[in-house]
Simulated assay, not measured.
Amino acid sequence: MTYATATNLLDQFGAEEIAQRADRGTPRLVTSAMLATAAAGGDLSGYTPAEQDATLAALAVINDRLLDADSVINGYLATRYTLPLAVVPRMVRLIACDLARHALYDDQATELIMERYKQVIRQLAALAKGQVNIGVDVSGNRPMVNDAAQMSATQPVFRRDPGGFI
């Protein structure tokens, strides 16, 4: 299970930007519509075989970068959480998207992308130290949202006979 999908990445940063970064061919054949269709598991039969091949290659690049992002995240989270996480918190999905985007830019990352990358690395370090909570318990099994204390007893506490509170 990955923390983010190609569709998450396209939604987060725009299919046009990601298509430009993921298409490694010359000339670039992959459009944002083609990439969005492929990421959603749609039909590419309306495109030429060269466009289909380029789109699937771009999608493979994206999925590889998302797996790389998962590895980085796991490296930090493994010190505190049991992996894999049963529920992927939104914060982790956003971190995975930022890491994958940074990786897609290789050595051509803009200042904004570099700053976002540094920020998510700081967030991961804080998660590993327990300074930030991602919303799951340290076993990674269940969301901590809406957790409440629970009590149980074998006998009723309030009763009319001797020994009760009434």
Rank of each mutant, 00 (worst) to 15 (best):
T2W: 08
Y3Q: 04
A4C: 01
T5L: 08
A6F: 05
T7V: 14
L9H: 04
L10N: 06
D11S: 13
E16Q: 14
E17D: 08
R21D: 07
R21T: 05
G25S: 15
P27L: 08
T31Y: 05
A33G: 01
A36E: 13
E51C: 13
Q52N: 07
D53R: 10
D53E: 14
A54L: 03
T55P: 01
A57W: 01
A60M: 09
N63I: 05
D64Q: 15
D64K: 15
I73R: 00
T79Y: 13
Y81E: 00
L83E: 00
L83G: 03
L85P: 05
P89Y: 03
L94G: 15
L94Q: 15
I95S: 01
C97E: 13
L99W: 00
T110S: 15
M114C: 09
E115F: 11
E115H: 11
R116I: 12
K118E: 14
K118C: 11
R122E: 15
L124M: 10
V132E: 10
N133L: 08
G135N: 04
V136D: 00
S139I: 11
G140D: 06
N141C: 07
N141R: 15
V145P: 06
V145H: 13
V145E: 15
V145N: 12
N146V: 04
D147Y: 12
A149M: 09
A149P: 09
M151W: 13
V157S: 13
F158P: 00
R159S: 08
D161A: 15
D161T: 14
G163M: 08
G163H: 05
I166V: 11
